[in-house]
Design a protein around this nucleic acid. Structure first.
Lengths: 202, 202
DNA sequence: AGACTAAACGGACTGCGGTCCGGTTATATT
DNA sequence: AATATAACCGGACCGCAGTCCGTTTAGTCT
């Protein structure tokens, strides 16, 4: 699936990670979840995490590279789940439904995902240089592009996929939901409207 | 125009700012431009700025509130210029042209603006909690919304305006131009395509 | 078992944005 | 001119993400 720089399957790690490293990774992820459920994602600092997990700060950064990397690791499981649902799961999200319906379902799924994991998603995007490095982002982009093509879109589908993806930007979605009290269903309706118009033949 | 928390007209400041404050603001803005032209926007730190301007660090934050506020102040003139062009200037950007053409022109203008002031715009968006506080953002949003209505858009024009605005997100635009080598004209073409499809009657 | 090595460890350190508060100074008032 | 006061000034200080490097240790080879 998406290639992540560090092992993350809870069991598979196999022949490449020392036992103390594995033990510390577990401790760190556990402590991170604990801290987040206590203080929210914003209350998780790298120092506190290191202390709580009983490891040195250097170890935290060795494992996850950055705060954003840690958040990505915490999201990894649900991320993979969502990915496999829209790539291999049942229609209309997965293959088998008309492209337009899949596009609508994709947006709806993404909106639900962002609403559910709010702060984590936000924190994961910080990765200094760009939220376009998030490996999953390339996948979504490509997915939208392919669906556009399938739906008979006849212009620059690569750029259009990016524009549509921007409408699903987590920061925007969460701002609408949290600060403007917009109901997620209304977001889904607007997304449906958007993609329908974009795909609709001249 | 957009209400900015600190005085910024080079002359008008009038009856509310002590002379030493005015002098220091000038020094700071001057030093900021100097530093940016030497080291780029990324090389401007608040400490360096304070030192270069010969003032204390506290003064910098008193004047501009944050790094993002400083960047906003640096952009203020060109921002106001752009705003008055699309609000009062000649068509197709200003009033007088059909709504769809104005929408296209607005996107083109914004793209050109972002490409020109790249790093500054990026730095101005950092404002910790959200890039939706930037006073100008509300104006663009409203502008797009009104143009959508004028063009006969018959659905949730407020949310649609936000979705379209997201396609003009500076971080995205600059990533496309700088890291993917996309020509600005291609961005404009894609924007035209997007708004045309969105506005096009069923 | 003993020695070797590459990997992992930990915590002091840096540079950053941002805050705080005691001292200073411009301006209005009498 | 003397006084009062509100605004301003400066730089020590804080918490943060991220780096560096000397030390320890797990896994391997003989």
């Amino acid at each position: 699936m998406t290639s992540i720089p560090f092992r993350s399957g809870p069991d598979q790690a196999a022949a490449a990670e020392r036992s103390d490293a594995a033990r510390n990774r577990k401790r760190l992820l556990w402590a991170a979840k604990e801290l987040i459920s206590e203080c929210g994602a914003g209350g998780l600092t790298m120092d506190r995490l290191a202390e709580r997990a009983g490891v040195g700060k250097g170890t935290v950064f060795r494992r996850f590279g950055s705060r954003a990397g840690l958040m990505l690791a915490l999201l990894h499981d649900s991320e993979v789940d969502f990915q496999s649902r829209f790539m291999f799961g049942p229609p209309p999200l997965g293959p088998g439904a008309p492209a337009l319906e899949r596009l609508v379902a994709f947006g709806a799924g993404r909106i639900a995902y962002v609403v559910e994991f709010g702060d984590l998603v936000l924190a994961a995007e910080d990765a200094s240089r760009g939220r376009f490095d998030v490996p999953a982002a390339a996948l979504w982009h490509r997915h939208i592009e392919v669906l556009l093509d399938d739906a008979g879109f006849d212009a620059d589908s690569w750029l259009m996929a990016g524009s549509l993806g921007a409408a699903l930007d987590p920061e925007r979605l969460l701002d609408l939901v949290r600060r403007h009290g917009v109901a997620p269903e209304r977001l889904v309706a607007s997304w449906r409207d958007l993609v329908t118009r974009v795909v609709r033949p001249a």
